[in-house]
Amino acid sequence: MRGALGLAFLLMTLHVQGHDHSRCAVDDWGRDVCLPASAQRIATLSPGATELTYAAGAGEHVVAVVSYSDYPPEAKNVASVGSHTRIDLEALVGLAPDLVIGWVTGNPAEQMETLEALGMPVFYIEPRTFEDVAYTVERLARLAGTEPAGQQVANDFRKGMAELASRYSGRAPVRTFYQVWDQPLMSVNDEHLIGQVVQLCSGENVFGDQQRLVPRLDDEAVLAANPEAIIAGGMGEESRHWLTHWEQYPHLAAVSDDSLYFVPPSLIQRPTPRLLEGAQLLCEKLEQTRQKRARAFSMNRSS
């Protein structure tokens, strides 16, 4: 199969010959990736990669995506080449991409090696900090020749996150449990991007010191930590039912203070510019808990 794929890729790349406007960027493996010209046919191999490529202003050049690439809405109309964990290589090569955007820890290594062996340019990304998100948009825009659009998005994201940091800096800490999954029960530590959002909002992640980026837990661990706020995420947009689980523990601080919140996971669990919107929501939720705490303290003093 590799021989047939290689021939197909050779034929479809002939159209780039003759261009001398090379585009180069360093990917998240630290490799210099250079194209002979701006990418015109891009394959994005994770939902996050899809969203970041569109954010960079290169959406009209995306010819292949993987399952769950649902934002922006027009990405749903792009040909799918499997999932981020299992790529349909023949379908991908048949779409003749001149740039593949891979995810550092999400794509199957063997299949990615096959693509590179065929000579297909692969640019690996995986933002892990706020600055990484902006920088990734800039690099993708560089490769696609859409620098003005990408730079604007990157600048707006940096500015928005800086404003949030300034607004919530010094606020009273709120002991927070972010639930990233229900079965098994999972959270994040302080190194995780979501953990960084909690800190940005002056929240205190009750599992922030865990060694694993995404630690597995049980109810007893949450009860022992006794968070003042519980925020649920998940894979879809209908994970509010996760919060009802905690209502069986009325003595849990977050339950007694009615501080059980939901933030749409697509806004906070993907490292894309929409993280700004998710961070704004999370900060607002924690501020609600602060206000509840302040009112309770005032009532106790007056009684």
Rank of each mutant, 00 (worst) to 15 (best):
Y135T: 06
A225C: 10
G203A: 06
S259K: 00
F262I: 01
Y249S: 03
A149E: 07
Q248W: 08
T176E: 12
A253Q: 03
N155H: 01
V214Y: 01
A149Y: 15
A221V: 10
P271E: 03
V174Y: 09
V174K: 09
Q151Y: 14
S256H: 08
D218P: 00
A225R: 10
I231C: 04
H251T: 12
Q151D: 08
H245N: 09
G234H: 11
D182Q: 15
E204V: 03
F207M: 07
E237S: 03
S239E: 12
A253D: 02
Q199G: 05
A165N: 06
F157S: 00
I194V: 10
V153H: 00
V180M: 15
R158H: 04
L200C: 03
R171V: 04
R175C: 07
R175H: 12
E163N: 02
V180H: 08
T244D: 01
Q269I: 05
E191M: 09
L140A: 04
E204D: 10
E163F: 05
A254I: 12
Y168W: 06
H245S: 00
D258V: 03
Y178Q: 08
Q179I: 09
R167Y: 06
W246F: 07
H245G: 00
R167E: 06
G145M: 03
H192K: 07
A221N: 11
L267G: 02
Q183I: 14
